[in-house]
Design a protein around this nucleic acid. Structure first.
Lengths: 197, 197, 197, 197
DNA sequence: TATGAATGAGACTTCATTCAT
DNA sequence: TATGAATGAAGTCTCATTCAT
């Protein structure tokens, strides 16, 4: 990927995250990226296209691990004897990812509700790639009696709510004296584990 | 409040929720409200002002109960012997409110990150009106041994994450066969209760 | 029709005729019309729309007479004993119209080849409204032996070519010493009459 | 002439004819010609220059014959006893040329009204090279009594109108069942001949 | 010689806001 | 009080042209 293209993407990510997609002008992006406004449109057909080019890779990388072997080994390998080990691996991995991609994650959360086409894609990715694998693993823990007998979607909802809450808190409170990330992560894992026991 | 003013607010709420604040034109609002575009600016100095007029009352109503006696009686009265009873009252009350104000809640969630002045106000409201009361109640449950020894902010974060997740699921999945609200509410309460035990 | 709307139309007609549709900027039109650029778009949704609003009425007025009674009386009434009388009425009437609408006629001739939708409409108008009536009249002159036995489309092509040539010459050479309109019109009528005898 | 230059010219002719000069982008031409956009500007200083390079040779070739010996022999040689023979030679020759250069002829007709410099050149060519020769020939037919006593410009206007009408019809209706070229050419010659008798 | 990335002027269009009625 | 025509700033995007490679 071209150097200017990268600079444009970086500038766009930063400003989109700060002011939102619609409130960001291409002129502003160009200035921050140190390119001419026209240059943006050489690399991205439209402004919307630029947004997609930002969101899609991160979306894919968010979901993708669930279908890859290495991650499977890291997170979903059934050798994990306990639900707690699984939660540990899952949360730490996703937390790290979210913090590395803080700005893009913010953009995704904020713009997704207005981007119907991307919503569709996200749903598809989730249903086809992520859900089946996660469901299998969770079911195995239910079978082993480590999680209470609940519908998988309910279990998933509760886990996701809590983890997303953790991620957002971590992003918002990062670098404040109120936030001890390791400790809060431990507590969150404990909370979920007990909540589902 | 004038009839036209109400019609403008209603129209704005509906469109803001659907398309977002920036992507909604005052012309569109005027048409839906059946008033002239100029009329909007008679009641609301600017478009941003209209947004504030929508968000603020709901924000206040979201927080206000925590300082009012009747709600205090309903939710925070220390006569609640158990944490479960408290959670029950809290969640059901907030769920009902969120669903009654679905559109405005959506607007608040989506626009708040970009409205620094309102963020400030929200923080103030939270810190001054809501947090002290909630903290007291939660502390009382900790003292009684119904909740684990954890910092109040952590407890609050975990509860709020889970409840917000419930509210969003309820709004998104409302009227689909996948969603049995009463059941999911019960399960969520159970989850929090056990998670914090 | 509003005064500003008229001023915009007049300005657009003048500049379109001079520089062509694509080479005319809305900014230029606005300046000539003494309105703000945005005002143009209150009255005409797009620039293309403005073009249509210019072309269509003239197109209709060009064709319309052929279906109206008063003009029929003037041009097509079968009381015209001779083909020459008919030609006289036709040519003088159309010449006058073309000169009154010089600029718009120029625009139509120049832009029509690139406006597929209008071409379609023109074809329809011609086939449904104009051709049938003209064909009837021409046939009657053939039957009376005043015109040679030729296919109607051929007759029409020859007449139209010659008349359009006259109109263009008249527009181009107007106000030059080389042009004596009355004389040239007479000669053209004579030319057609003899050519088809 | 370089191979790339030719490919550029060919591509430009095709697209100019289809979409018009202003609506054609150099990028589009480059793609169709299979060259880089910059290459266009190596051979033609500006886009306008490219247009001129297309129009000029055809314009010259349109006029040139009138000053060349071989054509003079073919068309203007005074050995032609009759006006009809002359018309025959003229029309068939010009029809063939127009059809061979259909696209460029279309471009000339459409762009000439907006290109003042080329208009000037065309006028000059016409006045200096074409008119004198044609006038001489036409005068000879008038003298022989084969054409009515009319001013030469008028005669020329009537002939040109009719022939241009024939050429356009031929281009537009080419390959439709409505068009029998040979027949229509004969009828047109007959029309002019009788019209001027 | 040929390329094509980069430019920035300028195109069309939208929209919050004003103000005469 | 209510209107809606008018504004013009600002937005997205296109394109002929340049220039380093």
């Amino acid at each position: 990927m071209n150097e200017k293209e990268i600079k444009i993407l970086e500038a766009a990510i930063e400003i989109f995250a700060e002011k939102g997609f619609v409130s960001t002008s291409t002129n502003e992006i160009a200035k921050k990226a140190n390119v001419a406004e026209g240059t943006i449109f050489r690399y991205f057909k439209t402004k919307k296209d630029l947004l997609k080019s930002i969101i899609k890779p991160t979306l894919v990388k968010t979901i993708a691990p669930f279908e890859m072997d290495r991650f499977s080994k890291a997170v979903f390998h059934l050798e994990y004897e306990t639900f707690e080990d699984f939660l540990n691996a899952l949360i730490k991995n996703r937390m790290e990812f979210a913090k590395k991609n803080k700005a893009v994650v913010k953009i995704i959360i904020q713009e997704m509700p207005f981007q119907d086409d991307m919503q569709e894609e996200l749903k598809r990715l989730f249903k086809d790639k992520m859900y089946p694998k996660v469901a299998t693993v969770l079911q195995s823990f239910i079978d082993k009696g480590q999680i209470k007998e609940l519908p998988i979607p309910t279990v998933l909802r509760l886990i996701i709510s809590t983890v997303v809450g953790l991620v957002i808190s971590s992003i918002v409170l990062e670098n404040t004296p109120f936030w001890n990330e390791e400790q809060e992560t431990e507590r969150t894992i404990e909370f979920i584990k007990n909540g589902l026991k």
